[in-house]
Simulated assay, not measured.
Amino acid sequence: MLPWLPTSPVQFPSLDQALDEPDGLLAAGGALTPEWLIAAYRRGIFPWFCDDQPILWWSPSPRMVLFPREIRIRRSLAKRLRNAGFQVSWNTDFAAVIAACADARSADEGTWISDDMRRAYMALHALGYAHSIEVWRNGHLVGGLYGVGMGRMFFGESMFSREPDASKVALVHLARHLESLGDGLIDCQMHTSHLASMGAREIARQAFISYLDQYIQGAQNSAPLMSARGQDGGTINEGGR
């Protein structure tokens, strides 16, 4: 039977108990508080559920990841990075990015980024754990992504594009930022052809947990990936370079 978690204390079952079908489903219940979410990500667990479901927690195996040095930039994307006139920033409008991601998912397939999920990640952003990367053109938000950063780990949650390749531009800048910190890892959670085309690949759950131990290195309440506070946003780079 699937374990049902109380709202307190924070306690997840062993990852060995995750189901094979559906792949990685570990438990239900708990809460979407920062305490629960931080504990989950540190263990390689993330929430994913629809409005008509309880909170569901996952740790799939294999795990889709992107090593920053392995990002694949095809000729057309390289040209867009140089010449498209994008400006790229981080943490300047987290609320707009998560709202745009929710809208994009809703239009495509119905969204799992519910109001409760948005509030939960806004709370993480206020604590300096959740981050957004924004892609702008002429002052308009045209793409971006958001996720959770701990140490040199970035746990990607969602991305969106309003112009061709805008989300890819955000991902490239994230990979470059991690590489500038001495490498790291981007958690893509589950396989998609879009991410595979950019160099993401699958690894076993135990290998993923080993990378967590390596790259987070005790960053319980400090050493955030980008900024100590979500409101301390800044420019990473400009797309015209």
Rank of each mutant, 00 (worst) to 15 (best):
M1C: 05
L5K: 00
P6C: 13
V10K: 02
V10A: 10
S14T: 06
S14C: 14
A18F: 06
L19D: 02
D20W: 11
E21I: 08
L25Y: 11
L26E: 03
L26Y: 03
P34W: 06
I38N: 10
I38L: 11
I38C: 11
A39V: 11
Y41P: 00
R43A: 15
P54V: 08
I55Y: 13
L56W: 02
W57C: 08
S61R: 07
P62L: 05
R63P: 03
R69F: 07
E70C: 01
I71V: 09
I71W: 05
I73S: 00
R75H: 05
L77K: 01
A78T: 00
A78H: 08
N83I: 10
Q87W: 14
Q87H: 07
S89R: 13
N91V: 11
N91H: 12
F94V: 14
F94K: 07
A96C: 00
V97H: 00
A100R: 07
S106Y: 09
S106F: 09
A107L: 09
A107G: 05
A107N: 01
G110C: 07
T111H: 12
W112H: 14
I113S: 10
D115S: 13
M117V: 15
M122G: 04
A123K: 13
H125Y: 14
A126Y: 03
G128N: 08
S132V: 03
S132Q: 01
I133D: 05
W136K: 08
N138K: 15
G147P: 01
G147T: 09
G151E: 06
R152V: 02
M153W: 05
F155I: 03
S158R: 11
M159E: 08
R162V: 01
P164E: 09
P164Y: 12
S167I: 01
V169R: 12
V169L: 02
L171P: 14
V172C: 13
A175Q: 08
R176P: 00
H177I: 01
E179I: 01
D183H: 07
D183S: 14
L185P: 07
L185A: 09
L185D: 01
I186R: 05
I186E: 02
Q189A: 03
M190L: 12
H191D: 05
H191T: 06
S193E: 15
H194F: 11
H194R: 06
A196T: 12
M198E: 11
M198W: 10
M198Y: 12
M198G: 07
A200S: 02
A204F: 03
R205F: 06
S210T: 11
S210M: 02
Y211R: 07
L212Q: 11
Y215T: 02
Y215A: 02
I216S: 12
N221V: 09
S222V: 10
P224D: 02
M226P: 00
S227C: 14
S227Q: 04
D232C: 06
G233E: 02
N237E: 15
E238K: 06
